[in-house]
Nucleic acid binder design. Structure first.
Lengths: 243, 243
DNA sequence: CGGAGTGTAAAC
DNA sequence: GTTTACACTCCG
């Protein structure tokens, strides 16, 4: 199952000699390969909007007893944008806390004889994420450098969003997130629209975007192929002009 | 003036940040540069034979009210030998209490704007030491691994010990201690033998070994030079045999 | 990996 | 409440 933030790794290195022989150092690797050696360094990279106070750097886990015991969180819920500006990697604003590190992570060992430990107590868990996190983005639009807002694209008519008060915008966001993050095929929700409406917590498949499964016809495929061929031709022409 | 234990330093460091900002930590540095961070650590380093119960680690002073209020001291007065085995640095068994830290000590400050404080009340003091500490060693001989006791060496006839009931053995010990520890020339006692006999506390120069000043003739020097030349020749021969 | 600086449980 | 003692962090 896909983990968030995608591509983060955790490493444990055992010290081999010296006064501190046997102690371990813990490192993280961000999706762009940057090595993180300490919690302050991680906080610097992520920016102010991530509250790491409950995040235990050494174990990679959340200390639930410490969650929210700290004072009011700095910054508005939408401050994630700042975090994203600071961090060059693409992190979806699904949670604003260190729970982004909650999932099991890869353990690299430098002692070849030792086996990689699996967290048996918890097993391989699904990525915890809010069911309708897309709603947090409602009313926000991307804009270009002239500050002109980009318009939302239109969806095909046979693509139907499922969920409470979910506009085209939110549906698009859930689709792009799924396409970006999923390692399994993106198929949409298999439960019926009415079942989801009744009890989203039970019936929604969090790994899939908020659209119903839709039929893709042979005709749809051919039409798309035609578009790709057309796009390639225009690219070819553009490159020829260049010379 | 020589201080004992020679080369110990005391440092006060003010915590600059964190929850404990403003608190101070006290560190000691042993003559061989080891950093001591707590009283138990100091006790471990010195060994059992040093009674630190009256020594206040934080201030570096003796709490006189606490002196000897503790139970019977563990170990015999001659247990210093164990202490010396534990500590790699050479500490003379001149006093068996923490008063070895009684002298003013260097204060290093990590805040550059603050001046180094000198203990004006007491000024720079002479090392307090017992006048005839060597008597504590009477009757003890070094021995080799076969447990055969090493014989005491003979002193030149013109070298005279001064002090009550001081044998060749004790005189030798006071000389070797002076040669080992003094930063000033080792010259022997300048007071007359009779004056010292009458009032040792007033007339003995504690920084000098318990011998009268003696005349070293030109002949003495030449004889010694001859011995050195002879010793070198024998070393040379021995190394040649080796090849 | 070392070590200065800080956190923090246990002892007062 | 404060202090002690030492484990741990974090950065060189």
């Amino acid at each position: 199952m896909m983990a968030l933030p995608s591509g983060w790794k955790r490493e444990e290195v055992v010290r081999q000699s010296g006064l501190s022989a046997g102690k371990t150092d813990v490192y993280y690797y961000s999706p762009d390969g940057k090595k993180i050696r300490s919690k302050p360094q991680l906080a610097r990279l992520l920016g102010e909007s991530f509250d790491l106070s409950a995040f235990d750097f050494r174990t990679g886990r959340i200390i639930y007893s410490a969650v929210r015991k700290s004072k009011r969180q700095k910054g508005s819920p939408f401050d994630f944008a700042r975090g994203m500006r600071i961090d060059s990697s693409l992190v979806l604003p699904i949670r604003q806390t260190a729970s982004i590190f909650k999932q099991p992570v890869t353990v690299i060992r430098n002692r070849p004889e030792s086996k990689t430990k699996t967290d048996l107590k918890h097993g391989v868990q699904e990525q915890p994420k809010q069911l309708f996190w897309e709603k947090r983005l409602q009313g926000l639009n991307a804009c270009d450098h002239t500050e002109e807002e980009l318009q939302c694209m239109e969806l095909p008519r046979n693509m139907n969003g499922v969920g409470p008060e979910l506009g085209t915008e939110s549906v698009l966001q859930s689709i792009s997130a799924a396409l970006h993050l999923n390692t399994i095929p993106v198929t949409g929700q298999s439960s019926s629209r009415s079942a989801i409406q009744k009890n989203p917590g039970v019936n929604i498949d969090a790994s899939q975007p908020h659209i119903q499964q839709m039929l893709v016809s042979e005709e749809d495929i051919q039409r798309q192929e035609q578009r790709v061929i057309e796009a390639r031709r225009r690219l070819q022409d553009a490159l020829r002009e260049e010379l």
